[in-house]
């Protein structure tokens, strides 16, 4: 690991000031991606701004048909939350599929969303459920937030404080895991609201999470797996690597989308 200066702010305002003052620094939430990246010297931030003391950024609430999860809430807390399980069971199930139990005890929803790893799980839930990402400065629609591989709408000194998910009629997440890393080779989140269906795909796109409008239109006409018969996503623009080539990922998208629709009921 390269050297860094360590800061442990006691408030979001202090953290934002530090992040603004040290633009080559990094915010440390659960650290389950950032620390391995630093250990491999793929990242060398000048400053680490450790958010672990910002206890007011932890917690889950459900009000007026919206589940709001504060940014430093750990995956384990989302996976086991009775409120999330009751309101959006697919979201709790997704959280329980991230990494392994020890990783879920540290990793946070805000960290995952801010990082926007192209194979991370949460971005698909944000996009399919039409979530709003709230920061210390503004509220950003998920459709505007994810801007490409590891790219988001976040500006310097901007910190995610919470993420709000409107409760859908039905939703399901199906993940085809890389058996070693547990990241999604392909993950498909399907959400049905009154009159609308959104389908978001993670793990597959070379530019990160994306929506499949063609699938959405077909499912809005008929919310059943058969509605996707004969439909597919083009392999161009999908990732190809030693784990799966683009054609295989394209095939998996349809398969996982059908499974998600079937499981959503």
């Amino acid at each position: 690991m390269y050297e860094f200066a360590y800061h442990r702010p006691g408030s979001v305002a202090e953290a934002a000031k530090l992040a603004g003052d040290h633009t080559d620094g990094k915010l440390l939430a659960g650290g389950q991606t950032l620390l391995p990246t630093m250990k491999q010297r793929l990242a060398g931030p000048s400053d680490i701004i450790d958010l672990s003391r910002l206890d007011d950024l932890r917690g889950i609430s459900v009000k007026d048909g919206v589940v709001t999860i504060k940014a430093l809430t750990r995956h384990a807390a989302v996976a086991t939350s009775a409120e999330v399980k009751a309101a959006i069971p697919a979201l709790a199930e997704l959280a329980g599929m991230i990494g392994d139990p020890a990783v879920r005890n540290k990793g946070t929803i805000g960290g995952s969303v801010a990082n926007n790893d192209p194979a991370a799980d949460y971005p698909s839930a944000c996009l399919a459920l039409g979530a709003t990402i709230t920061t210390n400065k503004r509220a950003i629609k998920a459709d505007d937030f994810f801007q490409g591989m590891f790219e988001t709408a976040l500006e310097e000194g901007e910190i995610i404080t919470s993420i709000s998910f409107p409760v859908p009629e039905k939703a399901n997440y199906q993940k085809f895991r890389n058996p070693a890393s547990r990241y999604a080779l392909v993950g498909v989140f399907v959400a049905k609201t009154a009159g609308h269906v959104r389908v978001a795909v993670t793990g597959a796109g070379a530019s990160g999470v994306f929506r499949v409008r063609d699938f959405e239109a077909a499912l809005e006409a008929n919310f059943a797996p058969a509605a996707l018969d004969g439909k597919s996503v083009s392999a161009s623009g999908l990732n190809s690597d030693i784990h799966a080539d683009a054609e295989y990922r394209a095939h998996l998208i349809t398969v996982m989308a059908k499974r998600a629709v079937a499981a959503a009921g």
Binding site: Y6, R8, L28, G31, Q32, L35, P36, I48, D50, S52, A76, P101, A102, V103, N105, K106
Partner: peptide, 19 residues
Amino acid sequence: CVVHVNGDAVKSCTTLALT
């Protein structure tokens, strides 16, 4: 490297001591 921090099992190779 799993240890318990405040009762939670975590990977101590992926945790800063200062945290």
